[in-house]
Amino acid sequence: MIRVKTLTIQLIDAQPNRIRICRVEGESLVTVVVPRDDLSEAKFLPNIPSRGIYYLLDEDHGNVSRVYAGQTTQGIARLEAHKTRKEFWNKAVMFLDDDQNISKDALDVLEAKAIDYVRTHGSYETDNLVTPKPYMDPYKEESVERLHDKILFRMAALGYDLNRVDQGPVSSAAIFHTKKNGVCGTGRYSKDTGHFTVLAGSNVDMSRPIQKNAAVTTLRNELFGGLSGIVELAEDLEFPTPSAAAVFVLGGSQNGWTEWVNDAGCTLDQVYRSEEN
């Protein structure tokens, strides 16, 4: 027997790459896709519910390299704070409903499920470092699980598959480098662990402060003390993610998947995550 779901998509200003409003027949949940550059316009969309969860994505043609999951009771307006505080994302996907359809305790558990999923699935980085553990009424747990499944279905239908794991054929010994702002750093990526090792002899730009990464800030201070300007790393250092390695070398806020490139000019993302590999 063929099972059919009808997904309708409204394109604001008839622009397929801008704001999209998506609904599934028979479901009250409203999905809104908001490009970062269109946030000011999206905040004034009429008749959009205010309670639900959202994903902030760093994505390129459906290829997701970084994800953050959160909850909102403010609807689209919640994204305004993230536009100020989080630089990495270029698209938000929100799943919103009325308060009577998602209670506050159900919302807390739904957010926890979303965070746990992005921390344990897919080959992308996440800014969610800890999974919340809220109390859940056992009589409501099944309905929240069904809602989470519906959200994952819509994400995949829109081209953002949070479960996709890309396999790259390149040896872990391949060298990647960055030369941003005249800072020359080199390193290796391990596909098995997801870690990135910055190699001895790499430059480290101590003149540029780090944004919101206390662990990397502490490490730089321990290694280089009060030094300023561009300094040289004396020994190899391993980092849990390519972005942490890029932040260590360059300062500021960096996306390591696009910052580290090989000798052919291909980014780490293109080498290890591209569906064309």
Rank of each mutant, 00 (worst) to 15 (best):
G194D: 11
T73N: 05
A200G: 15
D116T: 06
V34F: 09
H61Y: 09
R66Y: 00
A173W: 07
I53R: 08
V67R: 06
N17T: 09
I2G: 01
A215D: 14
G182T: 13
Y55E: 01
I53S: 06
W89E: 09
G256T: 08
L233Y: 02
Y117I: 08
S207W: 03
G229S: 05
D192L: 14
N213Y: 10
V93G: 12
A112D: 00
Q100H: 11
T31C: 15
T120K: 14
S228L: 02
G187Y: 11
G26S: 02
C184A: 09
F248M: 09
D166C: 05
N277V: 14
R273Y: 01
L129S: 14
F224R: 06
P16T: 10
I12P: 01
M136Q: 07
V118I: 15
L237D: 02
L199P: 00
Y117R: 07
L237N: 07
M155L: 15
R164N: 02
P49G: 07
T197V: 02
I210A: 12
A173L: 11
F88I: 12
S172T: 13
S253Y: 04
I115C: 07
R188L: 13
Q15C: 12
V216M: 10
E235H: 05
V249K: 04
F95G: 12
T193I: 11
Q100N: 08
V32W: 01
Y117L: 10
A42M: 02
A214N: 12
S103A: 09
A156N: 06
H82S: 03
P46C: 07
F239I: 07
F248N: 06
V24W: 08
G194R: 12
L158G: 02
A157K: 03
N262I: 09
F224L: 07
S243F: 10
L11P: 03
P240C: 09
D13E: 15
C184Q: 12
T84E: 15
Y272Q: 07
K5Q: 12
Q100D: 11
L45C: 01
S228P: 01
M94W: 07
W257C: 00
P138W: 06
